[in-house]
Simulated scan of single mutants.
Amino acid sequence: MPTWIASDPAEAAHIANQIGYPVAVKLRSPDIPHKSEVHGVMLHLRSAEEVANSAQAILDRVSLDYPHAQIDGLLVQRMAKRTGAQELRISVHHDAIFGPVILLGEDTAEWAIHKDAAVAIPPLNMALARYMVINAIKTGKIRQRHRPEGLDIQALCKLLVKMSQLIIDCPEIKTFDIHPLLASGDEMTVIDASMSIAPFSGDKAARLAIRPYPVELEETVTLKDGREILLRPILPEDEPLHADFISHVSVDDLYKRFFSDVGELNHEALANLTQIDYDREMAFVAVETILDDQGHATPSIIGVTRALSDPDNTEAEFAILVRSDLKGIGLGSILMDKIIRYCQSTRLKYMTGMTMPANRGMIMLAQKVGFQIDIQMEDGVVEMLLPLKR
């Protein structure tokens, strides 16, 4: 919502004349977070005289009830179109155990977070945000109403994801409250918001219950044939891309990777592969961007490497899988180098792996980078061990 700051009632009236009526005038004071305590919000003002008188009345009430409060002027806004809009509230609170939590519900006069709000822990992606919104609707935290433009769940999810990212990037934010949020179709209008901040030092990710997506681990590499690919941590949204990737891996290669006939992976299996806890597991995908005849870019996963650490975080079991039609272009070596460098950057002491004697390509690659190889022909397995250097 476009907002102007006025230093006094006269300037507020002048701004209102410039932006057009009706307008709202609001108190701006860090010492009075709840404007309702002094009737610090005046709505539907339709003339310069009404604006000036209402602004002066706000200042008079503050000087009477909060004589020592700091006043940083007055906010002037055009009145938002509330007809047909749903009034929601999004809030961020700090929990002693889980750290920052995001709350979502309807904007009510008596908002009790334990019964009126759905709760989620950042980081949120679009899938998790959608689950939060659907849960809020199913449990009555948000009531579906018959309006000309219904609630656009996709638009609300995008706002929740942006708010989650703001909390992750700015650990100084202690509380953040948006109320009301007018939701009308895909238009999300913030009518009022408040925030409290405090100095912060240390690891900003450590304060979160769930480690956020480690964007710093993304990198671009070049294959032997000159193609550039992106190496990045896997995301929950990669499920359809991962399913397509598996469809380009031969039955024989899948058997060598999983030690069984895999067949087509269902949603649950793909979710286990793509929705990971970055604190104890890491998976990197090699993503190639393909341009069609119209110049539209389509991402495609062509390789995956992952490492799963033990409960003591002493050793991690690794695995690598490359599309069967893309062998011989250096992708396996690139994925091996990426996962080794990642494990070296942690407290892990060893990397372990297991394959079959017939998987000569993996055995030769492991030997090349320093793995100790133990071939157990009777059991039909090859164990690989790499002491990690700091």
Rank of each mutant, 00 (worst) to 15 (best):
Asp60Thr: 13
Ile113Phe: 09
Trp111Lys: 12
Ala80Gln: 01
Ala80Glu: 00
Asp60Ile: 11
Val101Arg: 03
Leu59Glu: 07
His93Thr: 09
Val62Glu: 03
Asp95Pro: 01
Gln70Leu: 10
Pro67Ala: 07
Asp95Trp: 03
Ile97Leu: 09
Ile71Tyr: 12
Ala118Asp: 01
Lys115Cys: 09
Lys81Asp: 10
Ala117Asp: 01
Thr83Val: 10
Ala117Gly: 08
Met79Tyr: 03
Val76Leu: 08
Ala120His: 00
Leu74Asp: 03
Trp111Val: 14
Arg82His: 08
Ile97Phe: 11
Val76Glu: 05
Thr108Asp: 08
Thr83Ile: 10
Ala80Trp: 00
Pro67Ile: 07
Asp107Ala: 15
Ser54Arg: 14
Glu50Thr: 05
Ala120Trp: 00
His94Gly: 05
Lys115Tyr: 07
Lys81Glu: 04
Glu106Ile: 06
Ala117Pro: 01
Lys81Gly: 02
Gln70Glu: 11
Arg61His: 11
Lys115Met: 07
Val119Leu: 13
Thr83Gly: 12
Gln70Pro: 11
Ala118Trp: 00
Val51Ser: 04
Pro67Cys: 08
Leu88Lys: 02
Asp72Lys: 15
Ala109Gly: 15
Ala85Arg: 01
His94Met: 11
Thr108Val: 13
Ala57Phe: 06
Gln86Lys: 12
Pro100Leu: 04
Ile58Phe: 06
Asp107Pro: 09
Leu64Gln: 13
Arg89Cys: 12
Ala117Ser: 15
Leu103Gly: 01
Ala120Asn: 00
Ala69Ser: 15
His68Asp: 14
Ala112Gly: 09
Asp72Met: 11
His94Asp: 04
Ala55Lys: 07
Ile90Glu: 00
Ile102Phe: 00
Ala52Trp: 02
Thr83Pro: 06
Gln86Val: 02
Trp111Ile: 09
Asp72Val: 06
Ala57Met: 05
Glu50Asn: 11
Ile58Asn: 02
Glu110Val: 11
Asp116Val: 08
Arg78Gly: 12
Ala55Tyr: 04
Val92His: 02
Ile121Tyr: 05
Ile121Phe: 11
Ala96Met: 07
Ala57Ser: 14
Ala80Pro: 04
Gln56Cys: 13
Ile121Met: 10
Ala96Asn: 13
Asn53Thr: 12
Val76Tyr: 04
Ala120Thr: 00
Ala109Arg: 14
Ile121Asp: 01
Thr83Met: 07
Val62Met: 07
Gly84Asn: 12
Ala109Tyr: 13
Gln86Asn: 08
Leu104Trp: 07
Ile71Arg: 12
Leu103Arg: 01
Ala57Thr: 11
His93Ile: 12
Val62Ile: 14
Lys115Glu: 08
Arg61Ser: 13
His94Ala: 08
Pro100Val: 03
Ala96Cys: 06
Ile90Tyr: 00
Gly73Ser: 07
Val119Glu: 05
Arg61Met: 10
Val92Cys: 07
His94Phe: 07
His68Trp: 08
Met79Ile: 03
Gly84Ser: 10
Leu75Thr: 03
Val101Trp: 01
Val92Pro: 01
Thr108Lys: 15
Gly73Met: 06
Asp72Gln: 12
Ala69Phe: 06
Gln56Lys: 15
Met79Ala: 05
Glu106Tyr: 09
Lys81Ser: 05
Gln86Cys: 04
Val76Lys: 03
Trp111Asp: 14
Pro100Trp: 02
Ile102Ser: 01
Ile97Ser: 13
Val51Gly: 03
Gly105Tyr: 00
Phe98Thr: 10
Ala112Arg: 15
Tyr66Asn: 10
Gly84Cys: 06
Glu87Phe: 02
Ser63Val: 08
Val76Thr: 13
Leu64Arg: 13
Asp65Gln: 14
Ser63Gly: 15
Arg82Asp: 05
Ser54Tyr: 05
